[in-house]
Design a protein around this nucleic acid. Structure first.
Lengths: 141, 141
DNA sequence: GATGGGGGTTCCCATGATGGGAAGGTCAAG
DNA sequence: CTTGACCTTCCCATCATGGGAACCCCCATC
C-alpha cells in the first residue's frame, strides 16, 4: 500500500504520516524499489491508533508513550490509566479556563447596549477604566 | 520609561512588547538617542488593554480590531459587542470540545482496572478493537 | 514509443503566541 | 575605568498541520 492509500485507510493525511515518521513517532516505513513508502495493515492500524488518540486530545509526545505501551505485552494497565487520567485533568482544566473566559466576556457583553452609541463597557473593562466611573458596579462580578 | 519598566508596569513581557510592535499591533515606539524604546502612560495603557484582552482569550488579530475600536471615538458599541459575542461562541465551542474529550476519556479510564495486568480498554479503544470483544458494550458510552 | 496524469519524493515556509539565548551597545554607580 | 543591569537585533524552538515547488515513477492510452 502506498502512502496515499494508507492515508485514506487510516484517516491520517499523507503529509502527517511523513511527519510522524520524521519526528520518530513511527518507525521508518519500508520502501519499494522506486523509493515509495510501503505500508501494510499493521502500519494502518498504528495510524488509526494515532488518529483516535489525537481526537482525544493527546499530544504526539503522549501518543508516543501510549504507542510504546500498546506494543508492550508486559505493560501494566495502571500506567496507561495514569497517563489517561493525567490527560483528562489537563483537558478539564483547559475547558474550565475557556468556560471562565467565556462567562466573564458574556457577562461583560450583556452590559453593553450594542447600538450606535460609542459607550461600551467591554472596552472600558479592557482598558481597565471600569472603576473610574461612578456608575460602574464592578470589574468582573 | 524604558521597555523593562513598561513591561513591569503593564504585565506584558519586554519580549512580547517588541513582538506586538513587530507584528503591527502597536505603532513603533519612539526612541531615545541611545536607540532604546521610550514609553509613556498611553503606551502602558494600551499594553494593559492587550494583556486583559489576551486573558479573555482574544487573538492578536481580534485585539487589533478592538484597539482600533477603542481609539475610535465615533465607534458603535454594536461592533464591539458583535466581536465579543463571536469570541464567546468560539470559546464555548472549544470548551465543549475539550469537555467532550475529557468525558469520553474519563469514561474509558473508568473501565480500566489500572493494576499490574496488561488488559486495558483504553488501549483497545485507541486501537479500534473494542467491538471485536464480545464483552465490550460499546465504543464510546 | 511517446505522452499525460495522478501518484510519489524531499525541502522550505507559514501558522500563533511565546520564550530562550547569543552578540553587542548604553548607561549609571562604584 | 570597570562592572552590572539594561537595552538592541537576530535566530531558533515550541506544537500540529498544511501549502507549494521542483522533481521522480508508474501506468494507461494514443
Amino acid at each position: 500500500m502506498r502512502i496515499g492509500e494508507a492515508a485514506s485507510a487510516s484517516g491520517v493525511s499523507a503529509k502527517m504520516i511523513r511527519h510522524y515518521e520524521a519526528v520518530g513517532l513511527l518507525p521508518a516505513a519500508s520502501r519499494r524499489a522506486s523509493g515509495y513508502r510501503d505500508y501494510g495493515e499493521a502500519e494502518v492500524h498504528a495510524l488509526r491508533f494515532i488518529r483516535r488518540a489525537r481526537e482525544l486530545g493527546f499530544s504526539l509526545h503522549e501518543i508516543a508513550a501510549l504507542l510504546a505501551l500498546w506494543g508492550d505485552r508486559a505493560r501494566a494497565s495502571a500506567e496507561v490509566k495514569r497517563l489517561a487520567l493525567a490527560h483528562v485533568e489537563a483537558l478539564e482544566r483547559k475547558a474550565r479556563d475557556l468556560s471562565a473566559m467565556a462567562a466573564t466576556l458574556r457577562h461583560l457583553a450583556s452590559t453593553c447596549h450594542g447600538d450606535a452609541r460609542p459607550e461600551c463597557p467591554i472596552l472600558e473593562d479592557l482598558a481597565g477604566e471600569a472603576l473610574s466611573k461612578p456608575n460602574a458596579l464592578g470589574n468582573v462580578i
